[in-house]
Simulated scan of single mutants.
Amino acid sequence: MSYVGPDFDPHQPRRSRRPRALTVAAAALVPGALLGWMVYEAVGGPGDAAARPSAAESSSTPTTSSTNDDKPPGPTPTADSTSASVSGSGSLRGKVVVIDPGHNPNNFQHTAEINRKVNIGTNWKECDTTGTSTNDGYTEAQFTLDVAHRTRTLLEKQGATVEFTQDGDRPWGPCIDERAEIGNKAKADAVVSIHADGAGTGQRGFHVILPAKVNEGAADTGPIVTPSRDLGERIAGSFVRATSSTPSNYVGDGTGLVTRKDLGGLNLSTVPKVFIECGNMRDSKDAAMLASDAWRQRAAQGISEGIVSFLRG
């Protein structure tokens, strides 16, 4: 989803990946939740995650990947932040989770409506767009709904109340401001917006987008910055374990975490919220993963485990 469109700007030039020798050294020093991946990368690389067993807001013609205008200076996810697994029926009773599947699959039939601009607090952006797709035509909207359904099933088994911002059950939208409002009105304990990226070939991996501290117009993210980072770190760590995916090699400096202040879905939220870009649909290797039924189940497992860990505290 991260290309020119609502809440997105063209990304900065791609950074070179660190040499593997540095990765090995970092693995000895960084006690993050991505440590396991770093060691794995050092000894052999990720390969095609779709073939491995589980270890645990935009335009219809995507051409650029996401801007990282606020690199996350904070800590990488910690090992403790990913230790909880999804188990124990009823353990989330009383908790409310809102899942925001990025892009309504019917948006392409309602271009006038989704191009209408809405106030995101700090700026005006398009209501929504169609999302991206793989070269074979598998759409981001299809992907996000599928993973959202799987995630809901896992969370409901834990007793959580799960609400969607849309389920392909409305002609278009909702707009990005309404998406935020749905989570706010639900007084959600956690909100996760599920997406897949539309970056260039060779740009691979997932990243979790965290809200920056913004206090302008209708936006005041101060109260949610810290809990949202906690939520995002836990999801990033568990996503690595569940899918064996690697953190993005084009944003986030290898942490899998990106902080942004230009997203209405985050700026307007009053409850803890993050976005996750599960992979890059425009890269053939990532696309193969995203189109895999088994991999999507593991993605849902990783997202749900991170949410469970966050809600249990």
Rank of each mutant, 00 (worst) to 15 (best):
D177N: 15
D128Q: 09
V214Y: 01
T111Y: 01
M281W: 02
D253Q: 11
G173M: 11
E156T: 14
T129F: 04
I307Y: 01
G168F: 04
D80Q: 15
W124C: 04
N123V: 01
A188C: 06
T78M: 11
I182P: 04
T129K: 13
A188L: 07
V191I: 12
P10F: 01
M281L: 15
T78D: 06
T132Y: 00
L34A: 05
F8H: 13
R282D: 08
S245H: 07
G44Q: 02
H207N: 07
G265D: 07
G45Q: 10
Q158F: 00
Q12Y: 03
H103P: 04
T23E: 11
R229T: 14
H149W: 03
T226I: 10
N106I: 00
A26T: 05
T67S: 14
A236I: 04
A51R: 15
A33R: 14
S304D: 07
I120W: 00
L268W: 03
P19L: 12
R170E: 13
V96I: 12
I224M: 11
P174F: 00
S66D: 11
L311K: 10
T23A: 08
T64E: 15
V4Q: 12
P13D: 10
A148E: 10
F8P: 02
D293H: 09
N280D: 05
T161D: 08
G279T: 10
P211V: 01
E181N: 15
F310G: 02
T78G: 13
L231R: 08
A79W: 09
T76M: 11
Q12F: 03
L257M: 11
G265V: 03
V191S: 05
E178W: 02
E41S: 11
S60C: 13
D197T: 01
T153Y: 03
I235G: 06
V43Q: 06
A219G: 09
Y250Q: 03
A299K: 07
T165G: 06
W295T: 02
A26G: 07
D220K: 09
T23W: 06
L34E: 13
T246E: 15
T64R: 11
M281P: 06
T76A: 14
A51F: 00
I209W: 01
T243V: 07
R116I: 04
G74T: 10
M289H: 05
V98C: 06
G36W: 06
K117T: 14
T153V: 09
N280Y: 01
E277A: 02
D220N: 15
P46H: 02
M38E: 13
R204C: 00
R52P: 00
A287M: 11
G302M: 07
E277Q: 10
T221Q: 09
L155E: 03
T259Y: 02
S228G: 09
F164L: 14
G264L: 06
R298T: 05
